[in-house]
Design a protein around this nucleic acid. Structure first.
Lengths: 128, 128
DNA sequence: TTAATTGCAAATCCTTTGCAGATTC
DNA sequence: GAATCTGCAAAGGATTTGCAATTAA
């Protein structure tokens, strides 16, 4: 593939927006953020840029359960969510042990560049 | 929603097809299989049935990297998935340690009746 | 009977593409 | 100046939805 990549205003703007986020965002959301930031970038360009950034390894993607791809600048500390099925409240938590285990499991099956989704749900004490 | 579910020929046909598979299949593939098997079932019905089956917990779903959902009859044991972001191949794994950790974390925040979603993604060795 | 389910086609939603003009190197 | 980008609008592909007809209970 084209290992070539030119530094354009659009790509810089996208990179900037991505770095201001700590959660995965969809291409459409990124496009909205750009618009709000007065950077006019076409939606198609957002998609194309994100694509090349993923290939270049500077951006991470995940596909959510509704089939939408979500992007985030690589290597940031991430956390996970604990969700109450009744009231919808969420809490964030960090669990280094789980991170490590996930890594070990991936390695066991020869997977690299790993990422993971861990969501725990239950009934919180207020709803009990 | 509707916890009600009627036993229709269509659902039976879908169940039958699913049970004859050991790999995740997309709704469209399942629809094709049905057609080949001389079971005329509308595509919309396939989607709707799969949806309710997932809710009922008798079918597993995963979303592949191209945004397509794939379905498979649940296997007995509780397991998780390792997904290759590039080719979409999946492997199942069981990790009692993770189960335990998830439980511990939930308890720490006073959550009960817990459940969890754990998906690890990466690039498999064939795609590297 | 009657509420759930189906099939069809139209409608959505996210994403990709074709192409002419604007840009970067 | 030439190879890449961009923007726009049209095209694609998966999934959903409206609605009248059908069917299970």
């Amino acid at each position: 593939m084209a290992t070539n990549t030119r530094a354009t205003k659009q790509k810089l703007a996208i990179t900037e927006v991505l770095e201001g986020q700590n959660k995965f965002k969809s291409a459409q959301e990124i496009h909205e953020l750009l618009t709000k930031a007065k950077s006019k970038v076409g939606l198609a360009t957002v998609y194309r840029s994100l694509q090349s950034m993923v290939q270049a390894g500077v951006v991470d993607v995940i596909v959510s359960s509704d089939g939408e791809s979500r992007y985030r600048a690589c290597s940031q500390d991430h956390h996970h969510h604990l969700l109450c099925r009744r009231c919808g409240q969420t809490r964030e938590f960090v669990a280094p042990e789980i991170e490590k285990l996930a890594e070990v499991i991936a390695k066991k099956y020869n997977f690299t560049d790993t990422d993971h989704i861990i969501e725990i749900s239950g009934i919180c004490k207020d709803c009990k």
